[in-house]
Design a binder for these strands. Structure first.
Lengths: 348, 348
DNA sequence: CTGTTAGCGCATTCAT
DNA sequence: ATGAATGCGCTAACAG
């Protein structure tokens, strides 16, 4: 390794105590700041600890205090800015609360539930995003430790926290309708997640309100390849539409680009909108109209909730599950048909 | 919480043993699969465990086996696809190796070193990315636990792992020169990180090789706002250049967009290239010429290295530090002046 | 194949 | 202000 010291013989609280000529209790006290220690002794202990390169063993502490001081975050994947921001908010707030974070990405894992069980054994509470786990499984997990469902079903037996979907989808759809579009299509699979389901619900509501037929959703994935495939099909005349409401920006961008490459005029021929407000949404021409979600706040709030549970700050126990929803913001740019004057690409 | 069960009285190995009518050793055995247990007993134990909702206490196990089975990953931030991919690769491989991962994001933390010390107490080894820590601090940390520096200085006393920078930068610069560009500028601060420093080195080398003067780097940040600011200055005639080598894509895209908004023809008037191959790089017009790094592999390899150290697979101890470099790939698109025929935007 | 036993390193009473 | 003693839940010999 570093060639120098071998990480072999780790110093323990005992060796430090011995070196400082005090008892382990005193060492523990100076490190936890739990009780007052004489200035002199404190310094001797610190010196000894430094000298021995002492690093407390977390596991021992956890066992003693019966707390891991660690939160778990389960994510389906890590692509795009969405999950990163969520993690950022989650970790940041957790850290402020004195908690560490263990992340588990389920995608590509042979046995996700095994990974989660293992996670359960090392954290105090856990936030789960994604429907890789069926609802029963989640409910069961919630039995053993505080469990928060992120962007999941906004009801049901377990606590949940999510960004608003339905209302913004409806708003976005109405906006498209107001542009004179009449043949809209929703791209994305509502069964793939509660958030997408919510968006389709809003989409449907807007259409119904105008007395329009609600088309079946085009059940495709959210990747670029899915968008390209759809565009190809669309160009072949498989679908008829003058406006495409895509379940996320990645999909929207792929569709947009592919369509343009083949001579389709966006938004003149067909409008395209998405979700997430990724960076590319601002740089593409026409700039993509989309919905921005307070993802970071969502992550931070998740940490807060979990922390509150751990400290019994909330009326845990028999209280009914909480279901919080954070407001989102429709970002109107050009791909919907609007003409924005100053290209506002220099946002955050 | 869920209203139903209270996460109060957790079952222990003792309660399970009692319920199953066996000793704790047997319970431990069926859970660790460490030794053979009679089919009958095994089932009884499992049943009891399930009944009691037993989840082993990680901390207790860690203390007993003196291993956390956890890796630490320290990242400066989480913006853009770079860090996400790195984390993805790291977590994924770690998981395969039976290890969990704790992430720590230093950006925005009042006292990063405190967070790291705390991290050190709960993991077996740690990978650090970013120069928030001075080299001495890292060296010191490497004294207590296996420590791997990611995208850091490719020499020095601690193990490192990074993507190739200099050669690809040189290659990219030569490509620009071959396009007939003669007045190149490097955007980014070499002092902000070893990777950027390496890129500037390659940039310089290419220029020197052609007998050209090497301009000072334009020391700006990597955010969109930095790019916009530079573009403004450039438009005001502050800098003269017919090619801009940006330290990353975010910067390149911001510059590109801002320049175009003000009538500059890219790449005719000025070429722009970047690093990372973010999604937007494929969608922008002209498509951005950039350098793709094997970030996910880098993360996975980091886990491997750390795991190897923990198992003494490598000649740890007195061996000199290892410094591995992963090859990168220059992705030629249009912003450099090339005319690519089939818009290859449907890559991975 | 299964039970007994002895720590793992630390926080915490309870004394002093 | 400090020390001695106890236990947290689990694993790993060691017996049987």
């Amino acid at each position: 390794m570093t060639g120098s010291a071998a990480h072999s013989q780790r110093a323990t609280i005992y060796s430090v105590a011995a070196a400082a000529g005090v008892s382990i209790a005193t060492v523990s006290r100076v490190f936890q700041g739990t009780s007052i220690v004489a200035q002199g002794t404190r310094e001797r202990v610190l010196a000894a600890a430094d000298e021995l390169n002492y690093v407390p063993l977390g596991a021992a502490r956890s066992l003693a205090v019966s707390r891991h001081e660690l939160l778990g975050l389960v994510l389906p994947e890590l692509g795009g800015p969405y999950y990163s921001e969520l993690l950022m908010g989650f970790e940041s707030r957790a850290s402020e609360l004195g908690l560490g974070v263990i992340v588990v990405v389920t995608q590509g894992k042979p046995d996700p539930s095994r990974a989660i069980r293992q996670l359960m054994s090392r954290v105090d509470a856990i936030a789960v995003l994604g429907s890789d786990l069926d609802d029963d499984a989640l409910t069961h997990l919630a039995t053993v430790k505080p469990l928060l469902s992120l962007a999941g079903i906004p009801d049901g037996p377990i606590d949940s926290l999510a960004a608003e979907n339905t209302a913004s989808a409806e708003q976005l759809t109405i906006h498209l309708l107001d542009h004179g579009r009449s043949s809209l299509l929703f791209l994305g699979d509502p069964d793939a997640g509660a958030d997408i389901a919510g968006r389709y619900t809003g989409f449907s509501a807007a259409l119904s309100a105008r007395g329009l037929d609600v088309p079946e959703p085009v059940r495709i994935g959210l990747r670029e390849s899915d968008g390209a495939a759809f565009a190809t099909a669309h160009l072949a005349g498989e679908h008829r539409a003058d406006a495409l409401v895509c379940a996320n920006d990645e999909l929207a961008l792929a569709v947009l680009a592919h369509l343009q490459d083949h001579g389709v005029d966006v938004p003149a021929d067909v409008a395209v909108v998405g979700w997430d407000d990724v960076m590319a949404a601002r740089y593409v021409r026409p700039a993509l109209t989309t919905v921005r979600q307070p993802v970071r706040d969502l992550g931070a709030l998740a940490s807060d909730r979990l922390h509150a549970h751990l400290n019994g700050t909330t009326d845990a126990g028999a209280a009914s599950p909480t279901h919080d929803i954070l407001p989102t913001q429709v970002v109107i740019r050009s791909s919907c048909g609007c003409t924005t004057s100053p290209p506002e690409r220099h946002l955050p």
